[in-house]
């Protein structure tokens, strides 16, 4: 028994992981303030532009546009669902939050894809990048998303911008992974055919690998959207607007009705987006 307690004492030397991370974050803030500011600026502008654009449409017009798109892309059923779903959201008085949520999701997904897909491509071609990114991606995906909120808050303050940043970190993993997987799954014979007819690397990428990986990449896009949506409520904790905000408010006031209404809004948005951006 004595040995065990000695070993325990030995193990319990108190590695200051938390301190290290804190120092690292402090270091980033101190030295890369301008970079962080620029990022914040870009993201903020994107969100505002999307919001501005989406608010241009009167709610009824917006509903009709979505319904038409749904009808065109997926058919009658989704169109009907979209129309009634959107009317319900409007009816519950959550229209403004709904549009704000769409704007921040569009921003998050756009940034996540712009970063994620190229990273997936590089990862598929470089063993070193693959080995380096693998544990990082595991970490990004498994750490409880609440944890992202703290550094996001420290870097970017309160508001929608840190919410989007935290969302990007969380939602970027599937596009990276599925782009990588899609390219890796292109059959060797197709790669050989590409080479045999004299493709250079760019032709190889654009005419053989990416078209072959497209179904997988689209799945990554879909998952990215879904994961962004799941961050909506969480990001509200650091002041991100949208449908998460009434959920949070209802939590503090124990307002079951409001909570459910906002939750329902998220569900409706999730279903519409999922069905629209899915490879069938």
């Amino acid at each position: 028994m004595e040995v065990i307690s000695e070993i325990e004492e030995f193990i319990n030397i108190g590695i200051p992981v938390g301190d290290w991370i804190e120092n690292f974050v402090d270091f980033l803030i101190a030295n890369f303030g301008e970079v962080l500011g620029a990022i914040s600026e870009i993201i903020g502008t994107m969100i505002e532009s999307f919001e501005g654009f989406l608010f241009l449409f009167p709610p009824l017009i917006f509903m009709l546009i979505i319904t038409l798109i749904a009808a065109k892309v997926r058919g009658k059923e989704l169109a009907i669902f979209s129309l009634f779903g959107l009317m319900l959201v409007f009816n519950m008085g959550l229209w403004e939050e709904f549009i704000v949520t769409i704007a921040s999701i569009l921003t998050s997904v756009l940034v996540a894809l712009v970063l994620g897909i190229p990273l997936g491509i590089v990862k598929a071609h470089s063993k070193i990048v693959h080995l380096i990114t693998r544990p990082i991606l595991d970490l990004m995906q498994t750490i409880p998303p609440f944890v992202y909120l703290i550094p996001a808050l420290m870097f970017f303050g309160l508001g929608t911008v840190p919410g989007v940043i935290a969302t990007v970190v969380f939602a970027m993993v599937p596009p990276v992974r599925l782009t990588y997987l899609g390219i890796k799954q292109v059959p060797d014979e197709l790669i050989e055919a590409g080479q045999a007819f004299g493709s250079n690397w760019w032709q190889m990428l654009t005419k053989v690998e990416l078209p072959g990986a497209l179904p997988s990449i689209l799945m990554g896009v879909n998952q990215c959207i879904m994961m962004s949506l799941s961050m909506v409520v969480i990001a509200a904790m650091i002041g991100a607007g949208g449908l998460g905000e009434p959920v949070l408010r209802s939590l503090s006031t124990v307002d079951v009705g409001l909570g459910f209404e906002a939750g329902l809004g998220v569900v409706i948005l999730a279903i519409i987006l999922d069905r629209l951006f899915r490879e069938e």
Binding site: E189, E192, F197, S199
Partner: peptide
């Protein structure tokens, strides 16, 4: 670069499992 050029000019290839691009 020269090899890519050479492959384009000199070689056509046919594969055992056809190696056709399914999306084309």
């Amino acid at each position: 670069k020269e090899l890519i050029h050479y492959r384009r000019q000199k070689f056509g290839m046919v594969f055992q499992n056809f190696a056709l691009f399914p999306y084309r």
